[in-house]
Design a protein around this nucleic acid. Sequence first.
DNA 1: CTTCTTGCAAACACTTTGCACGATG
DNA 2: CATCGTGCAAAGTGTTTGCAAGAAG
Lengths: 150, 150
Amino acid sequence: MKKCQSHPHGSPELPELADRLRRKSRKVTIPRQAVLKVLRVRRRPLTVKEIYEALSPSPCDLATIYRSINLLERMGMVKRFDLGEGAARFELLAEGDDGHHHHLICTRCSDIVEIEECFPEELQAKIAQRNGYSKVTHRLEFFGVCPRCQ
Amino acid sequence: MKKCQSHPHGSPELPELADRLRRKSRKVTIPRQAVLKVLRVRRRPLTVKEIYEALSPSPCDLATIYRSINLLERMGMVKRFDLGEGAARFELLAEGDDGHHHHLICTRCSDIVEIEECFPEELQAKIAQRNGYSKVTHRLEFFGVCPRCQ
DNA sequence: CTTCTTGCAAACACTTTGCACGATG
DNA sequence: CATCGTGCAAAGTGTTTGCAAGAAG
């Protein structure tokens, strides 16, 4: 009797995720479903350790989470972010979404807000051109002190 | 008979660096001078391993490089960059320079170009304000394919 | 001669991998 | 039942730390 939430935040539902796995002839296993579920329920980008802890009291091996998350990343279902904390963070991606967006992170409590703004395209084009680079993208994250930590 | 180069790229000279150390009552040791020298001669941000290799055939311990670089960072003489490669990179800072700038990195050969453009201030202010964050900065790096790798 | 640094080795945190057992399709 | 995934343990990075020997001021 599971509630049929309509994609809050654009998060795909679990059955859809299972489908995506099957379509690529990947097995839909307990750990993979669990990882997807955690990523879907928690909104902010999670570290592997956070996923692991969210999975207890019936956790799976850390190695399994790493393998799952890497698979999901290769399949384009999950996006990896490096917020410079030493550990990578992962976010669920809606189908077709390339996941390009940025975050604002509280340097005190690690609260994370998703940001819609992006680096201006014309400016990036100018940078690419001036240096003769092609296929230029960027990685951009903001840091500050959140309201509650001030 | 060392050439008295005038700060290319704004890099401080070695004696000046030694002075900065002494002023903070830190000892001017062989390894520290060596690390500073490597950072000064090579222009691009270097990893600890690169510094280590540049130091051979008379290298010092890796731990010493880590300790030196951390000290120099705390003293504001060196700036750490996380370009998402797993290993941090370090650049020499001119005195007074906070080192805030960005890079364009070739995803094929890891060539690194320094970029003068920055994320627009008004936009950043807007982001900070909308989310109630204070003291907001950003980390921004560009990735692409350099002319030679295309 | 006192204090700070170094080298070495061990310890750490995050992540990956080899292999035999186990579950999925 | 063939294939793929898991748990476990070990190994691999990048980085830090404890400690005794050594160098700088």
